[in-house]
């Protein structure tokens, strides 16, 4: 590729990246603007002060929300990876009658939108008395077909002979899972973990349903609250909140970018 072609391509990519990233950039800039500056259509704030951030933290218990979101997302991440690992292991390495049928039924649940199962899930959680608890927020997301499917695809690339070799050596299934399968599947596990964390972090509807207590709400609800608390929304403050909320997401994405790419496309191209 000639240098001209290359620089042209990179320019095109930079422009596209700028357009894609503009809303976030704009939100970041707005978070420093005072009062009417937003409505005046300014792009660059007159002054970079953190007053908006301070009032965002004061208006709603945003730090508490951040902590809640962090706990819930971590719980969902750990729980989902654990359960998906075990399910995928069974679907890959353990022979039992009706395994394929069961797996088909299992992944067909991906076709049911989450919103459709919301009502029965809510009733179950309420019957268990789990409203306003971390359990109620996280447990319904532990068993997910997508994660199981992703890991099963990865596990299937491990030759059956490895499993048989461990059987001959007398190493049991759990040791095989922890000593062989998981280390070999590191990339897919990291992908799934990041994916889980991000989608849990961005949840809105479910936390809204199962929490009434201020102390248990998560960040996405907090943002909505900020927006609708007053008639005249102070966009600067809301955007300050938004920036604080998306920061962990961005950091995680940045750190796991390579792994995420590898993992999501694995098995797709073969």
């Amino acid at each position: 590729m000639s240098i001209w072609k290359k620089s042209f391509l990179y320019m095109l990519l930079s422009v596209a990246a700028f357009i894609m990233f503009f809303p976030i950039l704009y939100a970041f800039l707005i978070s420093f603007m005072q009062g009417g500056e937003v409505l005046q259509g300014k792009i660059i704030p007159s002054d970079f002060s953190f007053t908006n951030y301070e009032s965002a933290v004061q208006k709603v218990p945003l730090l508490r929300y951040l902590w809640n979101s962090f706990v819930v997302s971590t719980l969902i991440m750990v729980g989902q990876v654990l359960f998906c690992c075990l399910a995928a292991f069974a679907f890959t390495f353990i022979q039992f009658k009706g395994r394929n049928v069961l797996f088909l039924i299992f992944i067909s649940t991906m076709m049911i939108p989450w919103e459709a199962t919301m009502v029965p899930n809510f009733q179950t959680v309420r019957a268990l008395g789990w409203t306003d608890t971390y359990l109620g927020l996280s447990v319904p997301f532990f068993a997910m077909a997508f994660g199981t499917f992703l890991l099963r695809q990865q596990f299937k690339t491990i030759p059956m002979e490895m499993y048989e070799a461990t059987q001959v050596a007398g190493v049991n299934r759990f040791q095989f899972l922890f000593k062989v399968v998981l280390p070999v599947s590191k990339t897919s596990l990291v992908t799934l973990a990041i994916y889980c964390f991000l989608s849990a972090w961005n949840m809105y509807l479910w936390p809204l349903l199962v929490t009434n207590d201020e102390r248990m709400r998560t960040v996405q609800i907090g943002l909505k609250q900020m927006q609708s608390q007053e008639l005249a929304t102070e966009w600067g403050v809301v955007m300050a909140g938004v920036v604080m909320v998306i920061l962990p997401t961005l950091i995680l994405l940045f750190l796991g970018q390579k792994r995420l790419q590898e993992g999501l496309t694995r098995g797709a191209v073969k």
Binding site: P159, E161, M162, E164, A165, Q167, V168, A169, G170, V180, P183, V184
Partner: peptide, 18 residues
């Protein structure tokens, strides 16, 4: 298999890559 006191060598070797 592990009670039979055997060892086995597979066609694809079944070595653990990690």
């Amino acid at each position: 298999p592990d009670e039979r006191n055997i060892s086995m060598v597979f066609q694809n070797y079944a070595l653990f890559p990690h």
